[in-house]
């Protein structure tokens, strides 16, 4: 099993609903977020383009944040989800430095936090909160090993890219272009 997410940049409108839904679902403290929106404007008038991306932890196959964690708080669980055990984390921040995607933040209570793909929901057969709320249904989630999963189907029919492939982290967020 390999969980992954595909984000359709042709449909995302950058509304930020995925961000707010994550905040209320995961009780993220005020002023912080686990996912965020990037708006990339390119070209010059009148030939302009905007790419909108909903970003979060890439749950990398080759995760530097896990390798550099001195306590083992950062670890990988079934399905490839990268997790942080809060009460084992000493808040040293090594993982924050090592992540090429800036996906982690220091929680005011002294540990490091980030996206969990809403593991507590996956365990019950539900989708992550961001996927469930997105008004444009541009977030596709599921198991890459299952050819019928939403994410596998989305990747089959479209061109996609990953972010910072040169970092060698083997990220598991795919951006449909």
């Amino acid at each position: 099993m390999r969980y992954a997410m595909a984000i359709d940049t042709k449909k995302c409108v950058g509304c930020g609903d995925c961000v707010v839904a994550c905040q209320t679902e995961n009780n993220v403290p005020h002023g912080y977020c686990r996912d965020w929106i990037v708006e990339n404007v390119s070209g010059s008038y009148p030939n302009v383009e905007i790419e909108l991306r909903s970003e979060r932890c890439n749950h990398c196959d080759n995760a530097p944040c896990v390798r550099c964690c001195p306590t083992g708080a950062s670890h990988i669980v079934e399905g490839g989800i990268v997790m942080v055990t809060h009460n084992e984390c000493i808040g040293c921040g090594a993982c924050i430095e090592s992540c090429p995607y800036d996906a982690r933040y220091s929680h005011p209570e002294g540990y490091v936090d980030k996206c969990t793909f809403c593991k507590h929901r996956l365990d019950k057969g539900q989708n992550p909160a961001c996927v469930e709320v997105c008004p444009t249904k541009c977030l596709h989630f599921g198991d890459l090993d299952d050819p019928n999963s939403d994410v596998s189907k989305a990747l089959k029919n479209r061109r996609w890219k990953v972010l910072a492939p040169e970092a060698g982290t083997k990220p598991q967020l795919y951006f449909l272009t």
């Binding site: 509304c15 609903d17 707010v20 839904a21 469930e132 709320v133 997105c134 008004p135 249904k137």
Partner: peptide, 25 residues
């Protein structure tokens, strides 16, 4: 009150609120 989630039976939202509605709390 912890969160607000769209009602799937409703044709106005089909179970998906917009960010303002999700943030209504």
């Amino acid at each position: 009150i912890r969160k607000i989630i769209g009602n799937k039976e409703d044709p106005h939202c089909n179970g998906r609120l917009c960010p303002r509605g999700t943030g209504g709390i």
